[in-house]
Write a protein that binds this DNA or RNA. Structure first.
Length: 575
DNA sequence: GCCGTTTTCGGCCCGACTGTTTTCAGTCG
């Protein structure tokens, strides 16, 4: 079940979307969007707030507070239900298709009776859109491509939502009497960027109470199937969960089997066969006679195959078994290795929290250094000015003594222009402690131009970090077309770090590209790109991507001490 | 609908891109 704030966020966002689709006042819709975001990121639980308390949330006024209070009291918002009655839910879902906004969704519904993404795809294939005002020859093609993009990740759940769900499930099932072990496995344990379903494994003498506990959870929408060893449900958020219960003595073999990946397991099984053994989810057995060798722990299973334990994030058959055989497994970077965050925002631009709130939260995370990197002026909508930036720097300097162990760095997130230039001239850039530079526009340049602009950004002596290099948004927007190897070579040559952006919507660079970049000798940062205090915890997801890219703490500059990082940030002095 | 060293009305993140137009609407960041 999502946090109550998240439920309210979703309802307010739905209300805003429906206002947009029905052609209501755009500013009113925007006000609800803003309120939705503010509630979602509000650190306190809204459950304990009354209408007055709700109005303390910035962006929530009288009208929104009343609606939320009504929801908290009755579970319903009549104003929302009225709008829902006018517009089928599929019409709103169509606006999730890249290229389809509220106006087009309404036109498609009103003029062609289309009420779902599936019907939309069908109508395009049947050439029913031509002739509709505002839709030309290329529209259908573009929308179909958008639907394709949506479906590629459609049915898959982002890492943060899946992790939160899995942690709740494990907590609930661990509390069931008779449950001796419980953990999540599958691609979530390997920390893939999206997961198709959530696999939970548990041990108990009697599986029935665990199966019953799962099916009775309040957020179960459907029981897909239930037997003595396996139960599958679907949550009200549409995520499938498979629970498997095994005897405690088989825990290790089952955990290996259900963690995967399939390719990793096939390789393990092949190794077993060569040793006269057979590996399954029930254990490692001798082929002759069928005696069980081991199955109680993962350590034992790997050891019996002549291997050290292999971290789940490496189990993709990308050379980890060979490395393990040669005793060359990397010592993977851990979240606890991170000493700071070098890419964060405040409400000076598009963040939700104040500078002080962000700094306090960073201090509570135990960091030794922390950079504020609000947007630079070329991202016009953020309305940055030199004066605002300098005033923030002053404010940050005044906070310097607030947390004794936390060094505050003043930075910015620059915009890499189409030609590779950035927002400010060298003399202004020199005033920052750290500069992240990212692509925020011109996503459709050809490969040569994209490559050129990124290399030029690396060559800028004031650019320390390239942020979210490919600019992809999972399930929403593909990566830009760029020669990554050429950019990695430039980053390595110029001493420019490449970011592993930890936002679950981005996770950019992707794991396999991290691996490639590492081979070029690139250094990395693992940053939150936080726009709210709660998002400062995002590096837990970026760490997964970094581990899947085989990174060690040595590869990641924000695990370094300040003394060492300071040297790295003096890039201009090194050349 | 929200908000105020623009303060109770009148603004509100602005501009580029795309495909459709022939002067612009819709979408997006």
């Amino acid at each position: 079940m999502p946090r109550l704030n998240d439920q309210v966020r979703e309802l307010l966002q739905e209300y805003a979307d429906l206002i947009n689709i029905t052609g209501g006042d755009a500013f009113r819709a925007r006000a609800y969007e803003k309120a939705a975001r503010a509630v979602g990121e509000y650190p306190e639980d809204v459950a304990g707030l009354d209408a007055k308390g709700l109005q303390q949330i910035p962006g929530v006024g009288k009208s929104t507070a009343e609606k939320v209070a009504e929801f908290l009291a009755t579970g319903r918002i009549p104003a929302l239900e009225e709008l829902r009655a006018k517009i089928p839910s599929g019409v709103r879902e169509m606006t999730a298709v890249p290229g389809v906004g509220p106006k087009r969704a309404l036109a498609l519904h009103r003029d062609l009776g289309i009420s779902s993404v599936d019907e939309l795809a069908e109508a395009i294939r049947a050439d029913k859109l031509s002739g509709l005002a505002g839709f030309g020859e290329r529209s259908g093609e573009k929308i179909l491509h958008g639907i394709e993009l949506l479906r590629q990740s459609g049915g898959r759940t982002l890492l943060d939502a899946a992790t939160e769900l899995a942690e709740q499930l494990v907590a609930a099932l661990s509390a069931v009497p008779g449950c001796t072990r419980c953990a999540y496995a599958g691609s979530l344990r390997r920390m893939r960027e999206t997961v198709g379903d959530v696999d939970v494994l548990a041990t108990a003498e009697d599986s029935a109470p665990l199966m019953a506990a799962l099916t009775e959870l309040p957020y179960v929408a459907e029981v897909i199937g239930s037997g003595p060893t396996k139960t599958s449900i679907r949550t009200d958020q549409g995520v499938q969960v498979d629970l498997r219960v095994v005897p405690e003595e088989d825990w290790g073999a089952a955990l290996v089997y259900f963690t995967g990946s399939k390719a990793h397991n096939i390789k393990l099984r092949t190794m077993a066969v060569r040793a006269g053994l057979k590996l399954s989810e029930y254990g490692l057995f001798e082929v002759d006679g069928g005696a069980k060798v081991v199955s109680a722990t993962e350590d034992e299973v790997y050891a019996a195959l002549g291997l050290p334990w292999i971290p789940p994030t490496l189990r993709e058959d990308r050379g980890e078994i060979e490395a393990a055989l040669n005793d060359e497994l990397p010592v993977l970077v851990q979240e606890s290795d991170l000493r700071g965050d070098l890419h964060t925002h405040t409400d000076l631009t598009d963040g939700l929290a104040t500078l002080t709130e962000m700094v306090d939260t960073a201090a509570a995370r135990g960091y030794s250094y922390y950079a504020v990197t609000d947007h630079a002026p070329d991202l016009v909508m953020q309305r940055m000015t030199d004066e605002k930036m300098l005033a923030q720097r002053e404010q940050l300097r005044e906070l310097a003594g607030r947390h004794k162990k936390l060094r505050l760095l003043h930075g910015t997130e620059l915009n890499i222009g189409p030609d590779g230039g950035v927002d400010w001239p060298p003399e202004f850039l020199a005033g920052f402690d750290v500069c992240v530079a990212s692509v925020h526009s011109h996503f459709n340049l050809d490969r040569a131009a994209q490559t050129r602009r990124l290399i030029r950004a690396c060559e800028n002596p004031y650019v320390h970090v390239i942020g979210h290099l490919t600019t992809r948004r999972i399930g929403r927007r593909g990566p830009i077309d760029v020669d990554l190897d050429a950019v990695f070579a430039a980053a390595a040559r110029t001493g420019t770090a490449i970011e592993v952006n930890s936002s679950p919507q981005r996770l950019d660079l992707r794991d396999e590209d991290v691996l490639r970049a590492k081979r070029h000798g690139v250094r990395f940062t693992i940053d939150s790109d936080a726009h709210a205090t709660g998002q400062l915890a995002y590096p837990r997801y970026g760490i997964g991507t970094a581990q899947r890219g085989w990174l060690t703490a040595e590869d990641v500059v924000n695990t370094w001490t300040w003394q060492r990082l300071k040297h790295f940030l003096r890039k201009d002095a090194l050349h």
